[in-house]
Computed example of a mutant assay.
Amino acid sequence: MSGGRAEAVVFACVDADTLGGVQRVTHTVAQGLAERGREVHVIGLHRARSPFRYVERPRYTSHVIHRTPVSTLSPLGRRREHRELDRLLREVGPGFAVLSSPSVVARIRALLPERLLPIGQYHGSYEHARGSWHLDSVRDHYGTLEKAVFLSERDAWLFAEHALLPNTWSIPNPLPAWPSGTAGLTARRVLGIGRLEGVKRFDRLISAFAQACGRSVPGEPELRADLAKTRREAGEGWELHLIGEGTERQRLTSHAADCEVSDRVVFRGTVPAPLMGEEYLGGSVLALASEHEGLPLVVGEAASYGVPSVAFDVSGGLRSLVLDGETGVLVPPADVTALAAALAELMASAEERRRLGAAARAHVEAFRPDRVLDRWEALFEQVTR
């Protein structure tokens, strides 16, 4: 592309308004680039079951192709999708099409006009891709794009090496905003934030929290009597607040009862994005027990408020956010006992929470929205050079 700076950016997702990390990143970057004067469009191939509003006053234009949730398309539905995308994309000026997942790349790449240069994103880690169909799809489809964008330098290197991609680039997820204030870290509250779905493994988080409070947990090693007593005393008054909704809620409620912490696990439901700052200010530790993550925004958001995180070490993106022992604590994946021990240590020590929290906030300055937007602008410039 020549003749000056390309102004338009199209972001395409399978569903752009579901409550999730990919969608939050998409809307945050879209708004930031629009505020910098670009023509920006966000396309959702399907309408979310429960649409979530990320930006109160968007400066970009949103589009939905199918008015139904994600499903297998009939031949008629596929033809309709092609017609709608062709019509929409013909009205967009020259620029870039940022395709947010392997599924989107496979569905949209061939429909893009030449004036929209294709950039593929992958929001997961290399470790996750390797264990699913994603790695083959990235290998098959991303190498012919202008750039393949990953969440961390390590992930970009791993995909270049093992998926043989010649065009890798790394841009982290941006924080939605940069808060002026930080948490006092005196509230006896552990935060668990995300969709209540199986992959997030809130059952393991509840088990770890129960052990951190000195409870014996079904299926986990019995605590020594002296350790249980110490943890019960240090954990007095602590609560685990789960923020989010999903299909696992009833099972998690039952699991909390089995772990004897029903009175300490608070199911908060969905909290609107503009009010999440109050949640971080009221927390003292963020805990993450997911089976896999890319670059989890909740960890960066918590850190921006000075709240340290305890998490399973499941991805390069997570390791870029949490420096173990310096800005938070990482423990071996699926090791509930280790997660409980890390939680118990932070619950018992406000001094340690403050040390890690201050370092965490300083560390995630690199994920401030303006700095991440600068990296997107640098990518666009490099592609058109």
Rank of each mutant, 00 (worst) to 15 (best):
M1W: 07
G4F: 04
G4M: 02
D15C: 14
A16N: 02
D17T: 11
L19V: 03
V22Y: 05
Q23K: 01
T26I: 06
G32L: 07
G37D: 14
V42Y: 04
A48D: 05
S50T: 07
F52Q: 14
R59E: 08
V64D: 00
V64Y: 02
I65Y: 00
S71K: 15
R78I: 11
E81D: 07
L88R: 09
F96C: 00
A97E: 02
S100C: 08
A106C: 09
A110W: 12
P113R: 14
L117W: 08
A129Y: 03
G131A: 05
H141E: 10
L151W: 00
E153M: 00
R154V: 15
A160P: 08
E161K: 08
A163M: 02
A177W: 14
A187I: 04
R188N: 02
R189H: 03
R195H: 14
V199L: 06
K200G: 04
R201L: 13
D203Y: 09
R215F: 01
R215M: 00
P221I: 09
L227S: 08
K229L: 11
T230V: 04
R231Y: 00
A234M: 00
W238H: 12
L242C: 11
L242S: 10
G244P: 03
E245Q: 13
A257W: 12
D258A: 14
D258Q: 13
C259M: 05
V261G: 03
S262N: 10
V265T: 08
V265W: 03
V265D: 07
R268W: 09
R268S: 12
P272Q: 13
A273E: 13
P274I: 05
G282P: 10
A287G: 14
A289G: 13
P296S: 10
V299M: 06
G306R: 06
P308S: 06
F312R: 09
L323Y: 05
G328Y: 00
L330F: 14
P332K: 13
V336P: 00
V336F: 01
T337I: 05
T337A: 09
T337M: 05
A340D: 02
A342G: 02
E345H: 01
S349N: 04
A350Y: 11
R353M: 06
R353D: 06
R354M: 08
L356F: 11
A360E: 02
P369I: 03
L373R: 04
W376V: 08
A378Q: 08
L379D: 05
E381A: 14
V383F: 06
